[in-house]
Design a binder for these strands. Structure first.
Lengths: 165, 165
DNA sequence: CCTTCCGCTTGTGATTTGCAACCGCTCGTT
DNA sequence: AACGAGCGGTTGCAAATCACAAGCGGAAGG
């Protein structure tokens, strides 16, 4: 529970691994970023990998403590909403590279691939646009919104691939 | 030991996490890619994070089984050399993004940062050059070599940052 | 009051980790 | 032939972590 562990090394790659290098943390963040899930039950019930509630609770706590998420508090029994912080939003390029790699080197479903393909084709420009979108939704930034949103486009790609299969 | 586990989902990001999403696998690959270590004892003794020999043995086995490394066999008692495969070489952009993120959002040492900074500044062009270099060293590809090598430059940046601190 | 939904917590056993010691093999030296 | 150093690991054990299922107290609606 209480791990104020000093890092194993001061290498930036190791720092990233210590922040989200386990089997669940990035999955949770992925669902918030791409799946637009912001509530506990939503994250648990819609999880395609089937995360257990205690693991989810633990990861959310750690992510809040490590500054990757904020929890907009609600009294017990109320819906508590989680929001991405700027460091978490800046994981978009990491997700894009992970998706590209998985796409190319592992067997994956064509429907779920569609998003990774689009994110790869869009390149850094699309990533930036998506990050601005996330800043608007999660940080309440006042940047002008574009239409259609990147997430709408990513979901459209997924649905198109899903429908045609 | 015997995990022929089917994947939790067919999502490309999840596939990447299942391949190297734990606290040690990427560390081992990082030391092979950037530290030019190719032998068991070398990987264990020079590890700044201090990996244990049983964990290292397990990860090397898994990486060979999953097609990210090859082991050039030697008779027992002989040095066995590990080489990167093409999928592992294509992790360079992933490492670059992880390094950039860790650099920006976690406390890290300026000396170890130097490599991540250079890799970031060089961008995709430098990543490609580095990947070609790795193909030459690990796959025996016949591409012409450039001088100085990317690794030499990365190490020079590290030493410069280390000397000045 | 009763049901439903909310974010979790609490067991329980199985798996994985970290640590240290040890092993069988080969090679170069004496 | 004997030795020591170096090679890639294995083994045993305790501690931490994980996965699965069930349950819990508060709040809101009927």
């Amino acid at each position: 529970m209480g791990e104020v562990n000093e890092p194993r090394s001061e290498c930036p790659i190791n720092a990233a691994i210590e922040a989200f290098g386990d089997r669940w943390t990035l999955i949770v963040l992925r669902d918030i970023v791409f799946g637009d899930r912001r509530y506990f039950r939503e994250l648990q019930a819609k999880s395609i990998e089937g995360i257990a509630s205690n693991i989810l609770a633990d990861r959310l706590k750690r992510l809040v403590r490590s500054g990757l998420l904020t929890r907009e508090d609600a009294r017990p029994g109320q819906r508590a909403r989680y929001s991405l912080t700027e460091p978490a939003i800046q994981l978009v390029p990491v997700f894009a590279q992970l998706g590209s790699w998985g796409l190319r080197h592992r067997p994956t479903s064509s429907a779920l691939n569609a998003r990774a393909v689009l994110l790869e084709q869009g390149g850094p420009a699309l990533w930036q646009e998506f990050m601005d979108e996330l800043r608007r939704e999660h940080l309440g930034s006042e940047l002008p919104a574009r239409s259609p949103s990147v997430r709408e486009r990513l979901n459209a790609a997924y649905l198109a691939a899903n429908g045609s299969s």
